[in-house]
Design a protein around this nucleic acid. Structure first.
Lengths: 129, 129
DNA sequence: CAGAATCCCCCAAGATACTG
DNA sequence: CAGTATCTTGGGGGATTCTG
């Protein structure tokens, strides 16, 4: 039974990189989504982010922030004080992504029990005795 | 300027695994999303999928399908014929994910030009001469 | 305080080959 | 046809150290 087509056919699975894949890859990396969500609660400074996301290393924090800034999803502001104070926050573009992300997170949260149950069933039935 | 909070605060960033992270990880892996989208156009058999997604190896196809099946997002049906014919398709759970995915893909597609432009600007301004 | 630079390890995933 | 099995490699990402 063919399903009513809810999706635009993907931009031809070109040899190169698909723009959609491009975005999904970023959301799929270990920290981007978490940082975006964190920043959606308000702009924060570097070390504050270290505290908000305890498991992240400074290395990955800096790198991920840079990627997000490069993509125009967050802004970066350096206050010319000593010691320097650098803040990060969502741009309008980044902000426009949040509802989409919220939908996704909501789906995940809502169906997490079903997924957990499916896993249990699968793991129970898959072994050969 | 704090942003109106569009997101449920994440389930405590527990030491263990966050259910949301769990789902995002799967969507972020290299093939899951592509396979889900492909299957949303209708159930397909194993070799048909290798043709629909030319770049995937049989190894990764089998493995990804198994993960998706384990999570209850797709079903797997073995027709007892020789040679065996195995079909895959979306479950209701998988189906319920598609609109969410479609929204995400739509966002990516819609804002891809803005992202590309942001990257160009960033790359132009970041170097130290 | 906010990073950049290095080193290093581990495993996701490609290539290849074999099987019920 | 629909997969497993084995081998191998690239690079994601942690720990640590250095700087303006």
């Amino acid at each position: 039974m063919p399903v009513p087509d809810p999706l635009p056919s993907l931009p031809p699975t070109k040899q190169g990189t698909c723009p959609v894949r491009d975005v999904l890859d970023r959301l799929g990396d270990k920290w981007s989504t978490l940082l975006l969500v964190t920043l959606s609660h308000g702009a924060q400074r570097f070390n504050a982010l270290t505290r908000s996301v305890p498991d992240i290393s400074r290395r990955m924090l800096a790198e991920t922030l840079r990627q997000l800034e490069r993509d125009g999803l967050i802004w970066r502001e350096v206050a010319p004080s000593t010691p320097p104070a650098v803040s990060y926050g969502l741009t309008p573009l980044g902000l426009s992504l949040m509802p989409v992300l919220a939908t996704l997170i909501h789906w995940a949260d809502r169906h997490q029990p079903a997924i957990a149950e499916a896993r249990v069933r699968f793991d129970a039935g898959a072994r050969k005795p």
